[in-house]
Write a protein that binds this DNA or RNA. Structure first.
Lengths: 256, 256
DNA sequence: CTTTGCAAAAGTGAATGCAATATGCATAAT
DNA sequence: ATTATGCATATTGCATTCACTTTTGCAAAG
């Protein structure tokens, strides 16, 4: 649970591994760690994030934590009302709508760019991931299906050769990733998603950028529906993770 | 130059204006102020940003400044190598390429959404801005043209009714806005841009989302070319503003 | 029984202090 | 002359402290 075991002052990490000296700042670790706590639901929506509690959990002082909170607030994962402490931003249906509209445009762009820039090796790699994904689908292995699914989209994003696009996409994904929509994938929708992936692979093989873009956008629009349903279905308290303080109980978990 | 004149400790702003109580944190002011310093070129690309200097300029302590620096680094305006201080991220041609590709997709989306959601009043407002912009064009008033141009694009973005889209767009704009490309608008390109705007207004009036999207994307692609040329033309030291330390002179201002 | 007033407690916002790291320069070695 | 080395200085990273705001608990009034 703690990033470090020592309470004594320290600056950078003193790892004794070889290779290029990895100089990460404590701050970056904290951003990643707290973001993870939010995305996984360890810090549920609407729960307060008292600095002192988190500081003790992570074994750090308030300064680096506060720097991290500002960044996460900028990412949209936290609200920071003045003098009232950080609150995990709840995910509304409207948020999901907006975010998926933007992600749809970005993913369409990634498909289009990828068609122009992807290498033959990368197409083969995606084809391999696709085959594995089909197997996971056929045996009903939902978690594995999701994992491979995500890998395929990441591979397309990588092939777009646009880091700005990638980071924008991942930031948005971080916001909606908190919704636990996996269980909401109906057999019909699952089948449809697999078919869409068949089309994507086909269009990608033919380097048909416009078609890849079109399918990806539709694909994401359908996914948005699944995610939205999951928000409506879930009850407060079901999102997993224990509230760090009693204050969290006041929140409704997911705002309708 | 300073945000506050007092050196005494203070928390929130004690403005005595009426209306909804505006509670801005010092931190947010600092983010905005330093971002402005970067965008306007007061802090030129590649210049170091020593905490102490900026603190004295703004009349604040290091803590809020450091929090602001983290956020700006996250926005991509600063690099923060560990223990070596903040450096203003230089804008490369590649950055501009990437950013405009993404902005093109976002602006196309905004046009499409706007067509579906814009009110008649908003169309009239844009038509008014467009007329004023035409006048500015005809009398060769470049600054006024740019201002109205930007207002039109903002109006379309607003009409898209998607705050996530808006904030994503503005973040990306902040990165490329540092390039001073105004002077690089050739008469031919200017004429072309005006014609494109005619088309945009026409398509918007007819609520032809696909067409607005297509034109906006082309429009932005052309703009990207203008911005890229400005990067190649500019010499180091021309970006305005004095480096806060001699260290800045080491930088090349704009990386080719 | 509810509401209001106020004081104590808790928590945030910002400033300061201290240890660790990087930087610059003088000096020495090749 | 050029490169390496050691020390002094400057600057950053984080912890701690102080100041201020909000919340909370409780008592008294309505």
């Amino acid at each position: 649970m703690t990033l470090t075991n020592r309470k004594v002052p320290m600056t950078s990490n003193t790892d004794s591994r070889n290779g290029p000296i990895e100089r990460r700042s404590l701050h970056d670790d904290v951003v990643a760690r707290v973001r993870d706590m939010i995305v996984t639901g360890e810090l549920p929506p609407n729960s307060r994030v008292p600095e002192r509690i988190i500081c003790e959990q992570l074994g750090i002082s308030r300064t680096p934590l506060r720097e991290a909170l500002k960044v996460l607030a900028h990412e949209g994962l936290l609200d920071l009302p003045p003098n009232r402490g950080a609150v995990v931003t709840p995910l509304t249906v409207e948020d999901v709508n907006e975010t998926f509209e933007v992600m749809g445009a970005l993913e369409a762009l990634s498909g289009e760019l990828a068609c122009a820039r992807i290498t033959e090796e990368e197409v083969l790699e995606i084809r391999s991931l696709h085959s594995q994904m089909l197997l996971a689908y056929k045996r009903g292995d939902l978690p594995e299906y999701f994992r491979l699914n995500q890998q395929i989209h990441e591979a397309i994003l990588t092939a777009s050769r646009n880091h700005t696009l990638q980071s924008s996409y991942y930031t948005l994904m971080g916001r909606v990733r908190r919704a636990r929509y996996m269980a909401n994938l109906s057999p019909e929708r699952w089948k449809q998603a697999v078919e869409e992936h068949e089309d994507i692979l086909d269009a990608l093989t033919n380097r048909d950028g416009a078609r890849v873009a079109r399918i990806l956008r539709t694909h994401l629009k359908n996914k948005a529906e699944v995610v939205k349903e999951s928000l409506l279905v879930q009850r407060p308290g079901e999102e997993g993770g224990e509230p760090p303080t009693r204050s969290a109980e006041r929140g409704r978990g997911i705002r309708p």
